[in-house]
Each structure stands twice: as C-alpha cells, then as structure tokens.
Amino acid sequence: MKRTLGVFDAVVIGLGSMIGAGIFAALGPAAAAAGSGLLIGLALAAVVAYCNATSSARLAALYPQSGGTYVYGRERLGDFWGYTAGWSFIVGKTASCAAMALTVGAYVWPQYAHGVAVGAVLALTAVNYAGVQKSALLTRIIVATVLGVLAAVVVTLAGAGEADRLSIGADADAWGVLQAAGLLFFAFAGYARIATLGEEVRDPARTIVRAIPIALGITLVVYAVVAVAVLSVLGGTGLATATAPLADAVTAAGHPELAPVVRVGASVAALGSLLALILGVSRTTLAMARDRHLPAALAAVHPRFGSPHRAEVAVGIIVATLAAFVDIRGAIGFSSFAVLVYYAIANASAWTLAPRRRIIPALGLAGCLLLAFTLPVSSVSWGAAVVALGAIRYLFR
C-alpha cells in the first residue's frame, strides 16, 4: 500500500480512535463498577496502556507491516500466537465498532439508535474505501471538533462542582476498581490503529515510535481532566446512572442549553472512533488474508485508492449487522476482553526482543491478564468462548 501518512496524521488517527470511545461510552459503565474509585481505575488502565503502547511501538519499528500484533506474534512467538492475536483483534474490535456505531445512534436519535448506527457504519465504510488519506483528513476535522466541545464542557463545569464528590476510593472495592480499569482500557486501545497502519506511514521506524506515546499521552490528559470535571458535578453514583454523562453534567451545572452541543460532540467523537476502528480491523483482516487465515480474496488492494477495499466492505457489512442487534454495554465488555488478550500477546512478543528491557512487557502482560479476567462474568465467558473458537478453528486447519 502507499506510504502517505506522517507523524501528525498518525497521532490524529490514534486520537480519533481513543477520545470518542472513552469519554462518551466507557465512563458510565466504569463508574458503575468502581464508584468513587473511578479515577484509580483510570490510572491503572493508563499504566497498562502505557506498557502496551511501549511494547507495540518497539515491535512496530521492527515489523512495519499491516496487521499489528498479528505480525509481531507470528514473527516472535510462532504462527499460532500471531493467529490468536489477529483473531482476538478482529472479533474484539468488530464489537468495538458496533459499540461506537450505537453510541452515535444513542446521541443522534435515541428512538432509532440501531438504524442510525447501521447508516453510520455504511457511510464511513465508503469513506475508508476511498483511501487512508480521505480517512485521515476527516479524522482531523472530527478530533478538532471533539476537543473543542470537551474544552467547553470542562470550562462550564469548572465552577459548578463540589470537591467532596471527588472522595477518591471512599466507597470503592478492589474488584470494582479492577473491573473499571478493564472497561476503561477499551477507551485507551485506539493507539493500535497506528501500529496496524504500518504499510501506510512514511518512515515507520520513526513515525510509529513517536506517534503512539504522543497520542496516548494527550488522551490520558484529556480523560483525566474531563473525568474530574464530571465527577465533581455528578459524583460517582450520578455518573454510574447517567445515560449521557457529559450532557447530564452540563445540565446539572445549570447550563441545559449546552446539552445539545455536547450531544453533537459525542456523535462526532463516536464517528471518529468508528472511522479509525474500521481502518484497523480491515488492515488486520488484510494481513490475515494474505496468510490464508481468512479468505484470500480479502487481501486485494484497490489499484487506484490503495485501500484493502474488499476487507473494508466485508468488515462494514459485519459491523452493520451487529449494530442492528447488539447491546452497547455488552459490546464494550466483550471487546475489552478480546483486546486485552491481543495486547497480552503483544507484550509476550516484546519480551523476546531484549533481555535487559523486559520490565515493561512483563508488567504489560500481567496487567492485561489481570484486567481481562476481572471483567464482568458475561464478558469473560463470551470473550473466552470466542477466542477459544478461533484457536479451535486454527488447529483444525
């Protein structure tokens, strides 16, 4: 494929993946699990994400190909582990796509959320079909809009909150904090989009290594500032029960006229996340199709647009079908489990690179497994079953 993206474009694609998912979709379920321990869960998720990002960046510099950990696991650990990583990424991020599409529907037209979600998926699939440059341009616009809306929310809430609502950990238990961290990890996993674009960035050894930590650092700052502002107004209990946390927060702060603006920002943010998610899933699909782990026809690259157009269309159809039926909170939990398995394999792969630099991949591997198996029971059950199904399929082939 064509190498057209620089550091700035790669960072923007990473931001578009993360900010929409975290602020508007994961805060509520995480607060329900952790209560006043939400910020502790956020910090824990950030530590695990940092370890994963560092491991992914080191591996991406060595293997600048489409596919991310599918490629790294195959090269460092063997074909089975690469396949398992790719399978986990595709099924987990397909669920993420459905969750983001439903977030768009819930904010734009709640009564017809599933119909709006399907329309959003089909429209963004068409954008991605036209090539990654079109996707990067649209993502720039989306990220700028979302950051502007979030800045307005923080300024609005700054003088309306109460410090005692931030009593960190007062009514939280360790298990709830770990569950919240696992759910919030869903919000940080967008930097994988940068690694999966390994064939479309200029000078990948430099670009990817720089872009991943920059995107992660900016996202962490944004998450922390917004979470503190919303918690200071709604408190842990109010945030846990809010259907649209940021819109509810500005209304509670005495500015209901801003709620429609926040809803628009949420819709745009979720669109940005969905756009980048479809990019990442289709690139991993391309890589696995090249190795015949998926139908070989999906490995085609469009001669004009330079995009994996058949993979794009296939992913779009599957995501649109899921978005018509699934539940958003269930999709987030399932996605978190599968993606944590994916990053566990990334850290295990990074462990093999240099004996003197094993602390970060060791922490990342342990953190991924801990968070994966402290998620809600239904998420662990369904996630483990689907990952096992992929492993069985590999063994039979």
Results as ranks from 00 to 15, higher is better:
2 K>G: 06
2 K>C: 00
7 V>Y: 01
7 V>K: 14
16 G>M: 05
17 S>E: 04
17 S>R: 01
22 G>E: 02
27 L>H: 07
28 G>S: 15
40 I>P: 02
41 G>R: 08
45 A>M: 06
50 Y>D: 00
56 S>P: 00
62 L>F: 02
63 Y>D: 03
66 S>E: 11
66 S>M: 05
91 V>F: 11
91 V>D: 00
91 V>N: 01
100 M>G: 10
105 G>V: 12
105 G>I: 13
110 P>Q: 11
117 A>S: 15
120 A>N: 06
132 V>H: 02
132 V>C: 03
135 S>V: 10
136 A>E: 06
137 L>T: 15
142 I>D: 08
147 L>M: 14
148 G>F: 14
150 L>C: 08
155 V>L: 15
156 T>Q: 12
157 L>R: 10
159 G>I: 08
178 L>E: 01
180 A>C: 02
182 G>V: 07
198 G>S: 12
204 P>T: 10
205 A>Q: 14
210 R>S: 13
211 A>C: 09
211 A>N: 07
217 G>R: 07
222 V>P: 06
226 V>H: 01
229 A>C: 02
245 P>I: 09
247 A>G: 11
249 A>I: 01
250 V>G: 08
254 G>E: 05
258 L>S: 05
264 V>N: 02
275 L>D: 12
280 G>C: 01
280 G>H: 05
293 H>T: 00
301 V>Q: 04
303 P>K: 14
314 A>E: 08
314 A>K: 07
316 G>R: 10
319 V>E: 01
328 I>P: 04
340 L>Q: 11
353 L>S: 04
354 A>M: 12
355 P>L: 04
365 L>F: 15
368 C>T: 03
385 A>Y: 10
391 A>Q: 04
393 R>M: 12
394 Y>V: 13
